[in-house]
Design a protein around this nucleic acid. Sequence first.
DNA 1: CCGGCCGTAGTGGTCGGACCACATTGGTGA
DNA 2: TCACCAATGTGGTCCGACCACTACGGCCGG
Lengths: 254, 254
Amino acid sequence: MDQFVDQSEQSAPPAPAQKGTVTQRAIDEIKAMIGEGLLEPGQRLPTERDLATQLGISRSSMREAIRALTVLGVLEARHGSGIYVTQLEAGDLLETFGVVADLSRGPRLVELLEVRRVLESTATGLAAARITPDQLADVETHLAAMNATDDPEEILSHDLAFHRTIALAAGNDTMAAILEGLSSRTFRARVWRGYQEEGAFERTRREHARIHRALVARDPEAARAAAAAHVGEVEDWLRGQWEEQRPSGEQPAG
Amino acid sequence: MDQFVDQSEQSAPPAPAQKGTVTQRAIDEIKAMIGEGLLEPGQRLPTERDLATQLGISRSSMREAIRALTVLGVLEARHGSGIYVTQLEAGDLLETFGVVADLSRGPRLVELLEVRRVLESTATGLAAARITPDQLADVETHLAAMNATDDPEEILSHDLAFHRTIALAAGNDTMAAILEGLSSRTFRARVWRGYQEEGAFERTRREHARIHRALVARDPEAARAAAAAHVGEVEDWLRGQWEEQRPSGEQPAG
DNA sequence: CCGGCCGTAGTGGTCGGACCACATTGGTGA
DNA sequence: TCACCAATGTGGTCCGACCACTACGGCCGG
């Protein structure tokens, strides 16, 4: 059987809908199956070969579709075992959000930081009302570790954990996952490199301490304000950076 | 020549880094090229065949990598012409955000709506201060069209445009793109189906009118409050829906 | 009877080559 | 001069083969 056979319609007589590429159709098809509940989170899919046969396409095209859904965090392929639907939790699906942060530059970085300021302040405010003693202890651990070392790598690591713990304490996993993407390692590292050269260490410590104080006091408004100011500082600095080196031409790559 | 030949090193002697699959390596490689500025937005890439040769992998694997980056909005393949880097603007990269909304269900939908409430209220507040007369005219057009018809499809369409115009007027394209994803057609359609059955038409119209009034008055605080209340209404309803039909078992598929 | 070992079947991962569909280009002829 | 058309190049699709890994079940020794 060659590749000119028309795969006869199976269910949608009014809309054969030869939309775009067959791969795209396969992607939509699988997404639809999941959306309609035919495929449950964690469930195993048929084999690549079977799926390809079912949709009347080649295994190559089906593999491209599966790969696409894999990078989107919808599917997970286990070599030698099979293809599975992920748990479809916030973390799974929003992992790709980090790519946005990695590839954005110039004015878009400022916009991204503005979004982060809005969400981070909200999350921190919520956390002030909801954080548990255990979570608060975690926050304090990272805060102490951050102040106890001079290794930028370690500081950054604990800084990330500090904010992540707070975001999780807010009780909205989706919001926490988005913030995680907005603070992704490479993104923070890029901004930090220049930021800390301006002696922003002390200021950062003071801001973190203020956030912590608000959490201990269980004061949502103070927590919100402290978080907004904290992100806002970086935001303002970054905005200045961009406008400053704009006349001179290109910003340093990397 | 079979597939065991070692592709001799070309530039990175210290890190052959046989991480995961070759396709994943290709994805990271291309992302890195863009991140380092070697590939500019809009620029055309070498052909699939050349890229595959450069990285020492087969065309099939390279195609999977390209497909993956295509669905992420990083690359764009034009049949017969070539592969291009997108403009890497907010809309390009955040289009995948809609997938999250499409595939989320249950409690996660509420979380998503909570995020939307936070961002939508912020954007609407900003818009009140920044919106131009032309943009305000657009908003009024959609508002009028929305109130002039009974076709749910058309109402939904203008409702989306109403909020999109406002979000764009806020001046943060990234935030607007995220909101676009959070309000993606299928997401809204899913929620709307049940929501409007509860006679929420009138309330929605009043809320939209209130948002519009705040924009005309250029009152950011009022705009913010009106938008938060608007989204909050749907949020509360959805939260109630979820808790209500939870004991009865499964929510209706689709 | 039990438990670790090993072979086998099944699955995703990779490869190479063939051909089709479409876009672009440049020449040709009206 | 300009519309048309053929050639070329590119992404899109398909096929068949084989590799790498997992999972399972029978085999063998204890």
